[in-house]
Amino acid sequence: MEPLAITRDDSTWTYRLTDSAHWFPISITGVIGRVCKNEDALAWIEAWREVWEPRGNTCHAALQHFALHRWQAPRHLWPAGLDAGLPVDPWGERYGAYGDWIAPLLAEPLWGHVQVVASELMLYDLERNVAGTLDLLLRFPDGSYGIADLKSLSERGRKYDTRAQLGAGLTMAEQHYGLPMGRALTIWVAPGRCEIRTHTAEECRRRWVRVFNTYVRDWRPF
């Protein structure tokens, strides 16, 4: 799957189109944070950033490396500095600090039943003026497509509702690639375990529309 004309500033997590001067004022994550998280939750997230951010970044990088290697993505899709011709070593220097999370992720039986057609795919919705990054775009054995989002938890971390985020990704992937989307997956990883929850595409789309409409009403008065 070829990427769109969009790039991201990782220091601010903001997106812009590369074929114009358009910057997106907010990301999918930003919309959901405004609507679905109260001040205490946002403060907790910020206070523990130094714990969850490197863990999340490393697990996502390992998953992208795994997808690029297993499904033999062309070299122009490899991130700078990554040799995706080599397999992922969950316990090696690059990823080993979070091997307890990454090893069960890569051992998940799901990978024997799907094809990853895109990883870390940046998407946008010009009408809503929002952009974001899709963890995985998948093709299932029945020929339908879907997406997956990876979430890493601590040993005692609690799962939460991811349907709005998935719905945003589904909607944008449908807009740009016209693929028949049937379902969305949340991949939860924690030390020593990986669990997958499946959602219908329709419930995710409904949740995203509801969240975005609330954001427009309360936070975007124009």
Rank of each mutant, 00 (worst) to 15 (best):
I147E: 11
R139V: 00
T198W: 13
V88P: 00
M172Y: 05
E46Q: 15
R217C: 10
E155R: 15
V211E: 08
I28T: 12
A164D: 04
R55F: 08
E202A: 15
P104Q: 08
H60W: 11
V130R: 05
R75V: 03
R49Q: 14
M181I: 00
F212A: 03
G192I: 11
V88E: 02
P90K: 11
Q115P: 03
E155H: 15
T7E: 10
W91V: 07
A80R: 13
G99Y: 08
R75Q: 06
G99A: 01
D40T: 07
L77S: 00
L150R: 14
D161N: 11
H60I: 02
T14H: 12
N38M: 00
K159E: 14
L121R: 10
A61L: 12
K159C: 10
V209M: 14
I28H: 09
A107L: 05
F140L: 12
T186N: 06
E108S: 15
R156P: 00
H176S: 01
R220I: 06
W111C: 01
M172H: 06
I187R: 08
A84H: 06
N57A: 15
G56W: 08
G112S: 06
V211G: 04
V189S: 04
G146L: 03
H76E: 14
A67N: 01
W101M: 05
M181H: 12
W101K: 09
L63D: 06
P109N: 04
K151T: 03
I196K: 07
A148I: 03
T7N: 02
T162P: 09
A97M: 14
R193E: 09
H113E: 15
T162H: 12
N129H: 11
Y98C: 10
W111R: 00
R34K: 14
R197G: 07
P141R: 12
V31E: 02
L153K: 10
M122H: 02
A21M: 11
T200L: 02
I32K: 12
L121I: 03
D125R: 13
L138M: 08
A103N: 12
G143L: 05
P104S: 09
V211A: 12
V209S: 14
G167H: 11
L138E: 01
W44D: 05
I147D: 10
L185C: 10
K159M: 15
G99E: 03
R156T: 06
G182Y: 02
T58I: 02
D40Q: 13
W44E: 14
R70K: 10
